[in-house]
Simulated assay, not measured.
Amino acid sequence: MSPNPENPRVKATAAVLREIDAPLSIEEIELTDLQDDEVLVEIKGAGICHTDATAIDGTVPLPLPTVLGHEGAGVVSAVGADVTNVAPGDHVVLSFGHCRECDICTGGRPAYCELFAPLNYFGTRLDGTTTLQKGEEEIHGNWFQQSSFASHAIAKAANTVKVPDDVPIQLLGPLGCGIQTGAGTVLKVLRAREGDGIAIFGLGGVGLSALMAAKAVGCDPIVAVDTVASRLELATELGATHVFDPTATKDLVWDIMQVSAPGLNLSFDTVGTETVVRQCLEVLRSPGHAATVGFQGLENNIQIDQGHLMLGRTLSGVIEGDADPQEFIPEMVRMHQEGRFPFDRLIETFPFERINDAFAASHEGRVIKPVVVFD
């Protein structure tokens, strides 16, 4: 699509991935012209998510060079001719791409959209064009239909969610993926209710978001499991009634079962290893429901005992909390405003130019949810 000389293309500062497992490079790029169903957003903050890291290390294959980032939040700068849900000046959170037209989307489960892969992972629009370029070089973008590791991003109307202006926009990006995954799984998949016992394995941003959601609806007991003492301490502050370090016990499942015999109603895995998935099933009472969101690569064989699924036990794999962002992101914002969902306690901000430091802090476990921000 050729530039319009009367409407010059928007320039952006972006973090570009040019080689697998290499640091991101800060570069000046351009955004291509908006299509009719697209939204131009001035990014104010973008969360660092494990999925971005799996793209950098090659676990998720993608074309290079590319711009990642899929937890963006900012202010609408312009909209395409067909966009009606947001307008310039609106504060918005960007979430995952979905068509909103297939049977799955219209059935209220857009995280399993029939076009999820091409809309989120292929680096181009469905028509093969890119949203980014540098001179004559095409820069792959459209990562989760946003590529928000940039000062400006092009999103679709479908994954652009309006939020109130009085909530700190720099911090809201993680609501579009990681925090949505944790909270959505507890509220929309496990359907936690007051008095349900729940165990949460892994206390990163997703696990602690799940914990806060469980606390918000009155789960009791809330068992939190991690190997990092500071995360266990924070989990207690956020509502965990019992915490366990699996390296400090001879039999983790036995210890958890003593909390609420004959077991817990619900469990949640953010790790994805065979050991943890098995433990999630083993701590359940009957009937009980375990959910797993931990990602260990496209091929990750695990073995479980059929007996752990008998008598009404369920194991569910979940993407994006099985939530509709247009409904669930505003719900999380309301919970935060009511003081029941303090997700900001998980966040530490970094200037955008220190994005590689933010990834390192996340990888090393020094920060639960890094967010890179623009002034």
Rank of each mutant, 00 (worst) to 15 (best):
E282A: 15
G197E: 10
H336G: 01
K369G: 01
L40N: 05
R345Q: 14
G74I: 04
H242W: 11
K156G: 10
C105V: 02
G135A: 09
A73G: 13
P325Y: 02
I154Y: 10
F201H: 01
T185C: 15
G297D: 08
D57Y: 12
A111H: 04
Q145S: 15
G128H: 13
L132K: 10
E353Y: 11
P287N: 08
A150H: 12
P65K: 06
E327D: 12
K215A: 15
E19R: 15
R231Y: 09
H242A: 03
E353C: 07
G297S: 12
I154L: 12
I319S: 03
S209P: 03
A53N: 13
M332H: 01
V277L: 09
M257G: 07
D36K: 15
E274G: 14
W254L: 10
L284F: 06
D375L: 03
C99F: 01
Q258G: 03
N7C: 08
P164Y: 04
V367S: 03
A14N: 07
D226L: 06
T181L: 07
L203K: 02
D33A: 15
F374Y: 13
V293S: 05
I256V: 05
D103R: 09
P168T: 06
K162C: 00
V367F: 06
H70E: 08
D305T: 11
E27R: 15
G69I: 13
D344I: 12
V372N: 04
A290L: 00
P3H: 08
V259Q: 08
E101A: 11
